[in-house]
Design a protein around this nucleic acid. Sequence first.
DNA 1: CAAGATTGAGGACTCAATCTTT
DNA 2: AAAGATTGAGTCCTCAATCTTG
Lengths: 124, 124
Amino acid sequence: VSRELELELESVEGIQLRTFTVLFELDRAPHRRLRMSDLATAVGLSRSGLSRLIDRLVHEGSIERAECDDDARGSFAVLTGQGVQRLNDSREAHAAALRRLFLDHFSAAELRALSSYMERVQGE
Amino acid sequence: VSRELELELESVEGIQLRTFTVLFELDRAPHRRLRMSDLATAVGLSRSGLSRLIDRLVHEGSIERAECDDDARGSFAVLTGQGVQRLNDSREAHAAALRRLFLDHFSAAELRALSSYMERVQGE
DNA sequence: CAAGATTGAGGACTCAATCTTT
DNA sequence: AAAGATTGAGTCCTCAATCTTG
């Protein structure tokens, strides 16, 4: 399913699922910024993997890097106005694809059951 | 889950999940052989991706290539004795990891429900 | 020309090594 | 020495182009 979702998003909005997730996580974080390590964990990438993905997004203009005041080792990824725009442009396509490929196949009760099943195998 | 399963298999038996799946599919096919295209579909890889994976497995000795008598364009992947051995060596670790990471979390009824849920989103 | 398979080029990811700061 | 982040090297995958046969 997630592969199909990715293909759908990519063809409709020209955005990859992982990029969407990165923009989404940043958008809902305080000041639209997150430490590199925290963001890596949030989207399921290694530190180095995220570092290279952010390189690409900086190059595209969706994200900027910012230094950390209280810890000079640290670095933030910060969503730019263009990044917010890009996220919002793809939100609807993402939601529609998710509904069509996954959510529409289940009742509310089934979705609750599925959700509890998923929790059980989390982190195992 | 499948990522954890992969890590488990790889650390215990030194085999990747995708390699295991390839050996498994070949083992249950007639004459332990399959056309490259069919095998690619069965394990969810592109033709080129499978071609390169088979290159590695041939190099390791688990698989041989064979020509197709009735269609000279075609090519078979054939499991070698060493390949059968390798598959059997990792079967138990695979089953144990699958139980521990996934199956043990559910009752028989829940597994039936999950199975029907999965069928609904197949191919969508 | 279409189909089966492989190869060339390039993308995205990981591990290990490195640099900087704590 | 340990932690945050990046970089170097290598793996695995895909798309497009190619070669061979139907």
